[in-house]
Amino acid sequence: MKRLSGLFLLAAAIVLLPILFPDNYFVTVVGVTAGLNAILAVSLNLLMGYAGQISLGHAAFFGLGAYSSAILTARYDWNPWPALLLGLAFTGVIAYVVARPILRLKGHYLAMATLGLGIIVHIFIVQLGWLTGGPDGLGGIPTLSLFGWAVDSDQRWYIVIGTLLVVVVWLALNIIDSRSGRALRALHGSEVAAEMMGINTAATKTGVFVLAALIAAVAGSVFAHQQAFVSPDSFSFFFSIELVTMVVLGGMASTYGAVLGALILTFLPELLVVFEDYEVMIFGGILMGMMIFLPQGLFVGLGDLLRKLRRQATPTPRKPAPQEPASHKPTPQKPAPQKEEKRHGVA
């Protein structure tokens, strides 16, 4: 119930914003990018936040999805829909093949391996110029069209990506609350203990890795059609780091936190255009600061902070001092005085 009300709020915000601020650059243009980033962050959060498997190469799957669609539609004149499906199949197969060996690793080793994966995919994209257009990128990607409704304006992209975001969030929430979701959260804590519950941890990890890759590939494909142009820069190592920062900023193991983190890190650079060259540095700084001061992330951390402030604002409304003037029995709700009495007794 509670989780669905959150989803409803998200959907309402997505619907209301363009009505309240029509033709606003931040809503329809930046909003589209923010939506895609949120989809990516939610997918990475399934892997990183819930299952505890860090990935520094998530942009690779975003890139594979984007370039599959770009190449098939722009170079080979495929219809976008079968191109999307083939791109998904391709990304899924790669993720599956890579997952088994990579997910045997833990901690830093897993981080290194996924980092390597991201870099390899990036190098392939840059080097296979005859296919991908190399560093110059690949243009002329046709737009999507849904049953004759061409997605050819910012507003329409906003609708498509907003809808996709709601679907992905809904999917993530359902997975987390399901039997497989519990398995994911269990292996996050202790793989041995999870095995002892009868969970096939290798298969579970592979499953979530492939799922996260597929969601990223869908986002990539949509991104390619929306931009009509792709270049390797969008799928670099730095973007992977940015995605990790979004998840950590919003709060690991919180789907709405991932959305929040993505929104903040998409809008922040827009607002701080002057600092463009220092973007990566600022992201690094945010990441460090978060780890030190708010390791639970903004979503959970701010919630706790609000609760604390509210408690301070209304000073101890628990129980007004004048209770029963002569209560001989110490009530169990007041353990502190009891302890003190004991201490006195000993001393």
């Binding site: 039997r179 519990r182 959260r185 269990a186 804590g189 203990a193 999870a194 519950m197 009868g198 969970i199």
Partner: peptide
């Protein structure tokens, strides 16, 4: 080795993982 961040009920449900 209980799953510390998970609720008591989720822990129990995980125990029944093989009994779906």
């Amino acid at each position: 080795q209980v799953f510390a961040p998970l609720s008591v009920e989720d822990n129990l449900l995980l125990g029944g993982f093989t009994q779906r």
